[in-house]
């Protein structure tokens, strides 16, 4: 039973580009939704497990995009290598900012604000750093279909890369949740001093969570840059982090499948609204989106994941 459920779900994801009729635009939108869902899933490490309200996703997303794109344009380096190097660069920045933050015990709102500040600092640095980025878009050379270089015209190519990344992230998160890492991170989130007294190096484990999250988020940036074919400092977008954290909270903070499920649903609604309303009144779709977010948080403060879980429980007991 469980096998068939998983197999049919997997088959659906694999065949989705065909279902969408190989329509590049729809596949592009689906890939975008999956890409942001990867970030939500990566956020599970730092936010869900370690309980740090990180809003810095845009910083790592942007770094991944810039590093991958820069290497592709100026050194003809394959995007695959760029993804890894971008991830490593993001981990480097995450360490430089995260180490002192955890060392000095930054928490809650202050941690959130510091991470948001980081995004905007990097955005402006790359805006001023005209050797690498600057105010103009940098275009990645066009290739009809070059999987080794990681560049293709057809969007299904990026769909499968993103799908692969999503599965890897899911696997890593699931393993962490079941194992020592997840248990350690949750104990730190719940009661830091007690965790310390049980021999857990709390700063080190928070850093492990932050670095994992920053690496994966940077990879999404690299994929994004290659898919749209350019990079720009605007990709250091504070909005990505805010959106990620809100979706994770609406989905159920610390819940495993609630946030990614919520992400797919809410982002699909958002895209639907954007397509249908965005042309007539710009911003209106986001107003509705914001209203949905607030309503969800106010009326289901524990989140959609835990709520669905209790519903399933009720149905089973009948």
């Amino acid at each position: 039973m469980r096998f068939w459920q998983l197999a049919s779900f997997g088959g659906f994801l694999l065949l989705l580009p065909l279902i969408l009729g190989l329509n590049d635009y729809y596949i592009f939108l689906t890939t975008l939704i999956l890409l942001y869902t990867v970030i939500v899933m990566a956020w599970y490490f730092i936010g869900g497990l370690a309980g740090q309200l990180d809003l810095g996703a845009g910083a790592y997303h942007g770094l991944g995009a810039v590093v991958t794109g820069y290497l592709m344009i100026y050194y003809n380096v394959s995007g695959w290598i760029g993804l890894v190097l971008g991830g490593l660069a993001a981990m480097g920045v995450a360490f430089i900012v995260g180490f002192p933050s955890f060392r000095f015990g930054l928490k809650e709102v202050w941690y959130a604000l510091a991470s948001l500040g980081l995004v905007l600092i990097l955005q402006k640095i790359f805006l001023l750093w005209t050797d690498v980025a600057g105010p103009l878009e940098r275009y990645i050379p066009f290739r009809e279909f070059d999987p080794l270089y990681m560049r293709a015209r057809a969007k299904w190519f990026y769909y499968y890369i993103t799908l692969g990344l999503l599965l890897i992230t899911f696997y890593l998160a699931h393993r962490a949740k079941r194992g020592k890492l997840g248990l350690y991170l949750v104990s730190i989130r719940d009661e830091e001093e007690a965790a310390e007294m049980l021999g857990i190096d709390t700063r080190r484990y928070k850093l492990v969570a932050l670095l994992t999250y920053s690496f994966i988020t940077a990879v999404t940036g690299g994929i994004y840059a290659s898919m749209v074919g350019f990079y720009h400092p605007i990709l250091f977008d504070g909005w990505i982090g805010i959106q990620t954290a809100t979706i994770a909270i609406v989905g159920g903070l610390g819940h495993f499948w609630g946030p990614p499920l919520t992400s797919v649903i809410l982002l699909s609604i958002a895209e639907y609204l954007r397509i249908n309303l965005g042309g007539t009144i710009p911003g209106l779709h986001q107003v509705i989106f914001g209203a949905i977010l607030i309503t969800a948080i106010l009326f289901k403060p524990a989140g959609i994941g835990p709520y669905l879980e209790s519903l399933i429980e009720k149905v089973r007991k009948r």
Binding site: L53, E108, V109, A112, I242, A245, T246, I249, V250, Q286, V287, F289, G290, A291, L293, I294, I297, L298
Partner: peptide, 11 residues
């Protein structure tokens, strides 16, 4: 509080 007020930001 952060969650709700972040929603207000969006709005």
């Amino acid at each position: 509080q952060i969650a709700v007020t972040v929603g207000v930001v969006v709005l």
